[in-house]
Computed example of a mutant assay.
Amino acid sequence: MSVLEATELYRFFHIGDDEVVALRGVTIMLDAGEFAALRGPSGSGKSTLLACLSGIDEPDGGMVSVLGERMTRRPEPERARLRARHLGLLMQSGNLFEHLTVRANIRLQMQISGCDRPDEIDGLIGRLGLDGLADALPIHLSGGEAARAGLAAALAAKPAILLCDEPTAEVDAITEQRVIDCLIEICRGGTAVLIVTHSSALAERADRIIDFRDGDIVHG
């Protein structure tokens, strides 16, 4: 069953008199329990696609629906409600509140989603190799640690859909495998997972590889 559907997404950006086409009629569906890797060169529109799929950004054309509910052309409070109920989101930056510890960031996401389970926080932190960092502020984390803390926050509410942008970009090979194992585990539990990545190790474990170029899907 498709839990995320996007049809004919277009996104344009204007810089002075120039128009940049970031998305060119993208159509994509993601099924429950599917692990998909989205690959493509830098600047091809992958991050823009994730922003539109999550309702962080509004496409200029097309429609996105999440578990049968329309995300596009809805007021921000409605999009925020859908994100809180159904989506886990990890972008390349800005995933953590700087004044909150790792533990507090994860707890906040649980509370926002309405499923507060503080007893599960330590287990989630441990699964992502963040032992000893629960009480650290984001400013004291490395890039890779911050990404994994952001991923922990994204997973905190056990979302139906997880969208991630380069979750393993700044980690070593052993830590990358740990993150991939975690992603596959939650995917096998029914969560639909879409990962933007340049990692061949991550792509090799995906159920489906989607190749993206010049604002559209060329394969997958």
Rank of each mutant, 00 (worst) to 15 (best):
A160V: 03
L183Y: 09
C187R: 14
I180E: 12
D172Y: 02
C187Y: 05
T191A: 03
V193Q: 05
E185W: 12
T168K: 05
T168H: 01
C164Y: 04
L194R: 09
I186S: 06
D181L: 11
G190Q: 04
V193L: 12
I195P: 10
G190S: 07
I180N: 10
I186V: 15
Q177L: 10
I180S: 14
V179T: 01
T168N: 06
T191D: 00
E185H: 14
E185S: 14
I186Y: 11
D172Q: 02
I195L: 13
D172I: 03
G190L: 13
D165C: 07
V179E: 01
V171R: 03
Q177M: 14
I184A: 11
A192W: 04
R188K: 13
L163S: 08
I186Q: 12
L183Q: 08
E170L: 07
P159M: 03
C187V: 04
T197E: 14
I174Q: 12
A160N: 13
K158H: 09
D172L: 02
T168A: 02
I186L: 11
E185N: 12
V171H: 01
A160P: 03
V196R: 04
L163A: 08
A160F: 05
C164S: 12
I161F: 15
I174E: 15
A160M: 09
L162I: 01
I184Q: 15
A173G: 00
I180V: 15
C182M: 15
E176L: 04
I161P: 12
A169E: 10
T168G: 04
E166L: 05
A192K: 11
A160S: 15
T175L: 08
I174R: 11
R178D: 10
E166N: 11
C187M: 09
I184G: 09
T191F: 01
D165K: 08
V179F: 04
A173C: 04
I195T: 12
C182G: 02
T191I: 00
E185G: 15
V179I: 07
D181N: 14
P159F: 02
E185A: 11
I180G: 09
